[in-house]
Design a protein around this nucleic acid. Structure first.
Lengths: 190, 190
DNA sequence: ATTTTAAACTAACAATCGTTAGTTTTGTTA
DNA sequence: TAACAAAACTAACGATTGTTAGTTTAAAAT
């Protein structure tokens, strides 16, 4: 997918607006105004509002997919895999805050094949995460718990970390990584 | 706030629809259709779409406020307070799944005094949670970590637990409570 | 049986939505 | 400088939005 400079400006401005109010609450006139042009002018660069949403979300989804595919077959133990996943979530949170928020909040407004692609990627991601956790339990590195709830506990925090980060942008990724590793893997009780 | 039977049906049907697609993606005609009446008929019972959203969200927000206000001054230690908070989140997740999802996803579409009330309640809630965590660290019951990130780690999972529950409705609140207590407080590592 | 009330209806409104067509401006290349 | 391409513009479209006015139907109270 080739993105011209202007198209990229449109997409990233859209991501910023979508994050704040949601896809359906941002009109093409809102988006145009943020770029200081008229709504009709947007269509010199993009084919539809839907296309903008798909570009934003699918790119981030592909980032997650690529990372889990590299970490999954590696011969490291499951805790190290989880740490790598945490690190990746933090990186995407920091580098693509707006797009990540769109993915979380507006994926259900994707249509047809884009929605299908997203769901395929999400399901595959969760299946691989589940696998890592199962492996960790088998190898006695993780506590023997309800796998689905462990999976959810991890992902719920990692997926919404952008909410915290957008109010704490001065925080270094390193600090976030160390703290979240502790909170998520070791808990908070002394 | 007095809610007639019919008004309650409208509000709870709205909550169900808002959860799936978001406030601004559900039209009054959509809502009316789900109730098998015409859109204009809704206005015999409610004054505006906004009113519906405010009723849904503020009621849940008040539930959270009430609970934290009872648990806060009690002379129990901070871990017991956190456990009580977890339990309350699970109860609301189970009993008011749709309304909780609306609160999470659509609070920013509240207007004026309703938005103001919501934010006041949310800020007070987070401040009290923060206080519990600080107390726990001082009393050496909790690890000495970044307080804001501990707070976020807990709340991010508790707030979005409805996402998991709506796909796992057969799970008992007791099981959820025990597992989440473990995951959130003690971590997942063996 | 008559009146009253509650809750549905039809029809329409002004505003806003995403998008298209056709035109003008701007900047680059020949 | 003339020609071309990129990117803006104005104007408008049909559809949909939340909501109002006025009317009819159904149920309850007198």
């Amino acid at each position: 997918m080739k993105l011209t400079r202007r198209k990229l400006e449109i997409v990233s401005t859209a991501a910023k607006l979508f994050r704040k109010k949601g896809y359906n609450s941002v009109s093409m006139r809102d988006l145009a105004q943020a770029l200081d042009i008229k709504a009709a002018s947007l269509y010199n660069h993009i084919s539809s509002k839907q296309e903008i949403l798909a570009i934003i979300i699918l790119e981030v989804a592909e980032n997650f997919t690529e990372h889990i595919n590299t970490v999954f077959p590696e011969s490291i133990n499951s805790v190290e895999k989880l740490e790598s996943v945490i690190e990746n979530h933090i990186q995407i949170t920091v580098e693509k805050t707006n797009a990540l928020a769109c993915l979380n909040n507006d994926w259900m407004h994707l249509e047809q094949s884009d929605l299908e692609s997203y769901l395929v990627m999400r399901n595959a991601y969760e299946a691989k995460m589940r696998n890592i956790i199962e492996q960790g339990i088998q190898q006695k590195q993780l506590q023997d718990r309800n796998i689905d709830l462990v999976l959810f506990s991890l992902l719920s925090t990692l997926r919404t970390l952008h909410l915290w980060y957008s109010k704490n942008k001065e925080t270094s990724p390193q600090l976030m990584f160390e703290e979240m590793k502790q909170n998520l893997l070791h808990g908070i009780i002394r």
